[in-house]
């Protein structure tokens, strides 16, 4: 556990404006990315195999399997601390709710409009839902 992270004040942990720090991208290790690749690949393969065995609707449940979140929480705790992992999980509550919106929009649109357009609209719905949820609950 990082000493610096433990000493951070509550003030510093309070919600700050969202930002993208490109410098942090360079700190992602190959091992961490490989771990996440494995989690995503295994989930996708499991969903594909489940489709063959149980049909599309039953296997669709696995499309929302939290493999990547589980991998991220473990890695965040290793690199930073449990509080940062909890923060990530808090955000994922809203991301997960937005994922349900994605699925609902995709269900409503696939088969009625062009597939690419349906998935694009569903992805936008996910992003809009996630951002709206974050802003509503935590924007300061």
């Amino acid at each position: 556990m990082a000493e610096g992270a433990r000493e951070r004040s509550l003030f510093e942990r309070l919600d700050r404006r969202p930002r993208l720090d490109p410098g942090l991208l360079a700190q992602a290790s190959t091992r961490d990315l490989a771990y996440r690749f494995g989690a995503g690949a295994l989930t996708s393969i499991a969903a594909g195999v489940a489709t063959l065995l149980f049909g599309a609707r039953a296997s669709g449940i696995l499309l929302a399997f939290p493999a990547t979140l589980a991998a991220s929480l473990t890695l965040i705790e290793e690199q930073e601390d449990s509080e940062d992992a909890r923060e990530d999980a808090r955000g994922a509550v809203i991301g997960g709710a937005a994922m349900t919106v994605f699925a609902a929009v995709a269900t409503l649109t696939l088969g009625h409009i062009a597939g690419a357009l349906a998935l694009t609209i569903a992805a936008i719905a996910w992003l809009a839902g996630a951002l709206l949820g974050y802003v509503t609950l935590w924007w300061r």
Binding site: L20, L33, R36, F37, A67, T68, S72, G95, Y134
Partner: peptide, 30 residues
Amino acid sequence: GTLVVLFALLSEGLRPKRFAGLFSAAPAVA
């Protein structure tokens, strides 16, 4: 696996962690 890595990279670069968490639940596999 590739799309999950891309979202993970995005999440790595985002702060605060709670905001990054939105992307930990992105529908990449879906």
